[in-house]
Design a protein around this nucleic acid. Structure first.
Lengths: 204, 204
DNA sequence: ACCTGAACACCGTTCAAGT
DNA sequence: ACCTGAACACCGTTCAAGT
């Protein structure tokens, strides 16, 4: 009768992940402002000082959460683009859709990711953010090489694609662009509209 | 000898503005997370409960701050577009530049404005946000009528313009796009690059 | 190594009380 | 009307102590 009840698992190296998972759940419920380290610890079933064994402070935990968000974002972009063969424009639309969809599904996480927790710059979160952007650059670069996009610096083209999709994602996450939470077709319509105008220009 | 020292002016209806001004200063220094109502009150020279005479709670004060930011944004967009006669594309670039410039100069305020404080929806902040967006719609609408832009729903065209400029502004405010704080020419270059691609499309 | 409990300085908010 | 001071429940963080 020693290590049967689940609480004991936290003494075996799982606490860090348990804390991150609890934090993400609380984040979605209360928002970053209302998230307290003590509540996270309580949700994970440990004392309110236990998290300091795994995270330097509250900011470090939020940073780790943001980093995980960026990594998921990179994977989602990658997977979405890979699922569409050949057509670079369609790949871009699929990637943008993945980007915006994650924001719609996790508005609080999105606000955390792009809310400046990643200020220090030297930490893993900004690295993960850069990697997510790189995945967009690759799509554009491939498109330029395939002759689908204008013959410019892929970074410049990727930047405008990134800003468009990011802006759409952030406006939705901020609640300034109303989107029915469940209606993913609506998200797709928005993304396609923005992407069409982006691909062919709004000028006559 | 009754009302000579400035503190007394707060007893004459100025406290609300004094609090807002103190809050904006502290916001720029510490960020929204580190901003405490008690520190704002102290900076304004009143007790820590005095703000409750003018704001329902801390969120209400932050909301008022965001609202002021949206109003300034609308005025800046309006002024920038007005300063460029005739050419709709140039008006759009000027408006976008004003949008991004405000974000570069006030990153913390920008994060506050678009960080979801305006959730309730029924308050003045979201109204002010809508008004700022409307100022972009007007520019596009005028451009469509003048035959400068594609003959589509101006809202759709304004949305893609908005998302692009908003995305650029937010990436800079989040620190993901490095911009020298003082270098406004760099901001202008970025805006022009995004606007060019937006106007003429990235597709070949 | 990993976790606890007491302690400290802070915070938002409420409320009775002062002018 | 407008502001104060004490009070309450909470918070992040530190630290000595336990196993």
């Amino acid at each position: 009768m020693t290590v049967q009840h689940p609480k004991d698992r936290y003494h075996h190296g799982d606490l860090k992940n348990a804390l991150l998972q609890a934090a993400e759940t609380l984040l979605a419920e209360t928002g970053a402002a209302g998230l307290s380290l003590r509540a996270v610890a309580k949700a994970a079933g440990v004392s309110h000082t236990a998290p300091y064994r795994h995270f330097k402070d509250k900011a470090a935990l939020l940073c780790a959460l943001a980093q995980a968000g960026f990594e998921r974002l990179r994977l989602a972009i990658h997977a979405a683009a890979d699922a569409v063969p050949h057509d670079a424009g369609q790949k871009l639309i699929a990637a943008g859709s993945a980007y915006v969809t994650q924001a719609v599904r996790n508005p609080e996480l999105t606000r955390l990711m792009f809310g400046g927790v990643t200020e220090p710059g030297d930490d893993g979160a900004s690295h993960a953010a850069d990697a997510a952007f790189e995945s967009l650059v690759w799509i554009i670069t491939a498109g330029v090489q395939a002759g689908a996009f204008r013959d410019r610096d892929p970074y410049e083209l990727a930047l405008v694609a990134w800003t468009s999709m990011h802006g759409l994602a952030m406006l939705i996450a901020a609640g300034l662009l109303q989107v029915d939470a469940g209606d993913e077709a609506q998200v797709d319509t928005l993304v396609r509209s923005v992407a069409q105008n982006l691909l062919y220009g709004i000028s006559k």
